[in-house]
Simulated assay, not measured.
Amino acid sequence: MSLVSVVVPCFNQAQYLSEAVESIINQSYLNWECLIINDGSVDNTETVALKLCKKDARIKYFRKDNGGLSNARNYGIIHSNGEFILPLDADDKIDIDYLNLAVNKLLENSQIKVVYCRAEFFGTQTGEWRMPLYNFKELLLFNTIFCSAVYRRKDYDNTLGYDETLKYGGEDWDFWISLLKNGGEVFRLDSVQFYYRKKEISMHTQLVGDKAKEQYTNNIIFNKNYELYQQFFDDPISVYYKAYELSNELEIIGKSRIYKVMKSMWRMREKFLWS
């Protein structure tokens, strides 16, 4: 049975850490290690982490100076021993069969590089996280795979890891591009196995809507992968600015009254269909 390394960076998320790690402990797949990376937290992350370590010997704890999310993920993966990697943020959680289903799919087909799943929100927002199916050309325009997907350590080693200059977010988007740019399949499990916590304030909410941060992030990803954009798009500069304009338009639409009414009606429809 192949070892899976679940890497859990934590920066001042002690109140959520136990729930995230408990979802790992409860996995039907037993051959895993969990690496909790305390990225310079000033809350009681260490106390919570050490208590979890006593609960299960498969849990390991590391403390380091604050270096940001990408740095913490890279640190954890470098110190991991598994054939497969699953990044899991300290405020999210996974369902009981995620590792089992993902590992079996990766072992079944060597052409598959990434396995992810359907996902749901919890916290301040609930409901299914509807994302378009993976297509590499679309991946160049916007992220279509959340961070908590399972992949091989050897494929990570063929990249430069998570870009530590992407300090505001987008590090997972950039990583998927680097992992998949030379080919490889992506498989989505047709069941909800990942739960993404929605909060009033998070790294994501601080990025979305802040045009300076968004442009900083997009510039890094675009410039790093300019040759890919040239390969897939006739006029990559125009594509970049069109995507930026679309982002502005979507922000305006999102603030409109009609959009808010339609969104409320859609949520009511979803509750009715799933009840």
Rank of each mutant, 00 (worst) to 15 (best):
L207Q: 06
L207C: 03
V208K: 10
V208N: 11
V208S: 14
V208W: 11
G209Q: 12
D210H: 01
D210K: 01
D210V: 02
K211V: 14
K211S: 13
K211P: 03
A212F: 00
A212P: 02
A212T: 00
A212V: 03
A212W: 01
K213M: 08
K213N: 13
K213Y: 02
K213D: 03
E214R: 02
E214G: 04
E214W: 00
E214Q: 15
Q215N: 10
Q215E: 13
Y216A: 06
Y216L: 00
Y216Q: 02
T217R: 09
T217Q: 12
T217C: 14
N218W: 10
N218G: 01
N218I: 07
N219P: 05
N219I: 14
N219D: 12
I220P: 11
I220S: 01
I220G: 03
I220T: 06
I220A: 09
I221A: 06
I221Y: 14
I221N: 14
I221H: 15
I221W: 12
F222E: 04
F222H: 02
F222Q: 03
F222A: 02
N223T: 10
N223C: 09
N223I: 05
N223S: 14
N223Y: 05
K224E: 00
K224Y: 04
K224C: 01
N225D: 00
Y226R: 13
Y226E: 03
E227N: 12
E227W: 03
E227Q: 15
E227F: 09
L228A: 08
L228W: 06
Y229F: 15
Y229Q: 09
Y229W: 07
Q230D: 14
Q230M: 08
Q230V: 10
Q231T: 08
Q231F: 10
Q231A: 09
Q231S: 11
Q231P: 01
F232I: 07
F232R: 08
F232N: 14
F233G: 07
F233Y: 15
D234C: 10
D234Y: 14
D234I: 11
D235T: 08
D235H: 10
D235A: 04
D235L: 05
P236N: 08
P236F: 06
P236W: 07
P236T: 10
P236K: 05
P236G: 04
I237P: 02
I237D: 10
I237R: 09
I237A: 15
S238T: 10
S238W: 06
S238I: 12
V239K: 13
V239E: 13
V239L: 08
Y240K: 14
Y240F: 15
Y240Q: 09
Y240G: 08
Y240L: 14
Y240I: 02
Y240C: 05
Y241R: 03
Y241M: 07
Y241S: 06
Y241K: 05
K242P: 00
K242F: 08
K242S: 07
K242I: 08
A243I: 04
A243N: 11
A243W: 04
A243Y: 06
